[in-house]
Amino acid sequence: MIVINSISKDHTTTEVIRWLIALGVTDFVRIDSDVEDIEFVGYNGIDSFIISKNGIPINLFESKSYWYRRGGAISFFKSKLKDMKLSQDLNLEKKLIGNISSENRALNDYIKQFVAHRSPVSLGSYSNSSLNKLHVLDLARQFGIKTPGTFVINTKKELSRKLMENGPLITKAISEGVSIYNVNHSYYSYTEEINESDLVNISDVFFPSLFQKKVDKKFEIRVFFLGDRFYSMVILSQRNKQTEVDFRKYDERKPNRFLPFRLPAEIELKLAALFKALDLNTGSADFVVDKNNEYFFLEINPVGQFSMVSYPCNYYLEKEVAKFLIN
């Protein structure tokens, strides 16, 4: 049996499953953390670890292959909890619910750990699905991978000094960028360039924020890592002011080119070591290449959208992932 953790709207998961079926696999289960069709049934510690999907029991001991694609914890008790009164004391009730939800999280963590260890084939990692960017940059440097000068700054004074020393900087979230919708607007945060001229709009003291020296970019590289292979793509966006700092800002008239790329073997070796140190056998890595052909590592996203590499480069990565899970 192949067990897949994902979320219901993840198109990539759907495509991989289509390939699994085409390759003759019938025994698989997709667990979407945002759909309430999974129930906990029981674990005896020996040979039976049962959850159910739409009432159909699944023994996780039978998992031969596991893919942690993405997604968080399943709420095993959510529907029942709604009708329960745990205490008359509201404060106490809130704390009890907090207890139950941390129990739920721990149980969920264990299920994922259990399946990952139990399955001879395991791809992706829930426990490493959210990396700390600053830590990964440190590690990358240890493996001899260049990174842009990186600072965390919280005062205008210091920012101004760094701008003077380094020239233009970029800023981005330390964790995840903003992605918020309400009925009338969508809010996203991108990687933004910061110049001396931006200082007038910045307050004297602000939340500690991540800044990096802006690389004089020739092009960007997105690398998908699977098992022991790298699938790389170059993004040519430098002709275009709008996408110069962040290629996600599309320009429909002059769209960026996303082309197959062969990462130099030396960079591949170092990057493989970095993935290994992070205990990840899949993920997406970003680089910028400067005008002197130096490769600067930016970050690793363990649950990145590899379809955005697969389609333009004609790599059929969804099929490769399916084949990985079958082996």
Binding site: E15, R18, W19, I21, A22, V234, L259, P260, F261, R262, P264, C313, N314, Y315, Y316, K319
Partner: peptide, 15 residues
Amino acid sequence: LDLFPELEKRWESPE
């Protein structure tokens, strides 16, 4: 030039 391979002339679909 070696950094920039051509697109593989290949088409497949699972269905």
